[in-house]
Amino acid sequence: MIKLLLRKWLQGLMMILCVSVVTFALLGFAGGDALTRLRDNPQISEETIERLRRVYGLDQPLVIRYFRWLSGAVTGDLGESTYFRVPVSGLVWARSVSTFLLGTAAFAIALTLAVPLSLIGVRYKSKTIAAFIDLLILVTASTPRIVLALVALAISVRLASFTVDTSSLVLFWLAALALSAPLISAFLAQFHGELQRIMREDFIKLARAKGLNESAVILRHAVRPALNPVLTIAGLSLGGVLGGSVIVESVLGRQGLGTLMVSAVRARDLPLVMGIVLFTSTAIWLGNALGELLQVVNDKRLRDLGF
């Protein structure tokens, strides 16, 4: 158990390091920074720009800049955003709250839809329910988040008379719904498929032979083993949710991590871009680790395998 945690921890650390190196190198090699724009301004002299470059440490070679950034990042200091003029870490923390809420709501919607529906589908083996689940999987899997977000915007514009109140609860849930569509299809496909497979296993036959009624067979014996793949998928889809939040947030005008990333890219605010990339990759690694941990808790056999 501890060995597993330690290995996961090291793996995650390596991944985050790799990502930061690659992003930093790309940003560095492409050249151009927040000061490039100042250069076009005739009122600012060459000397001022040189001085600014020294202040921000931009005259140092790439490797030194990277290690300087890294040593700051370890202590939680991600530098100062060149566009917003505030420390990156504070900015990222503040904005991530709203994205976190949105993502949680999206996961909640997907789970409350997928789990009962799969259970009903397995309990009452009717063709209509199976066809409905199939259709729902197809539709939610192939409706892009951007389309859903735009439709949500159109609906809210129709409902409200003049302006769209971005803080309204209706809009929040619409945004969460748009974000959750691919999750619904992933959870539904995985959980329903797994349940169907498990219902044909021998231990289910045994449970039935004991005289348990069908609902008890499903709830007590089939759900638990079927839950593990869902946990894997949930952990893996975290990246998709964070990526999708960029679109959903900017379409619906929410202030979150996604919109922060967009403004950082547009302003070529390198410290901020680096900070967000670091933050999101850490969050994703944490999510994956959590998903795996829950799996081990759920399935004791994994512990014996030394996983």
Binding site: V19, L236, G243, V246, V265, V277, S281
Partner: peptide
Amino acid sequence: DAMLALPTLILILGVRAA
């Protein structure tokens, strides 16, 4: 695995920033 775990859109935006 590292590639798959990353949020693609944020990664794309990161590359785009360059």
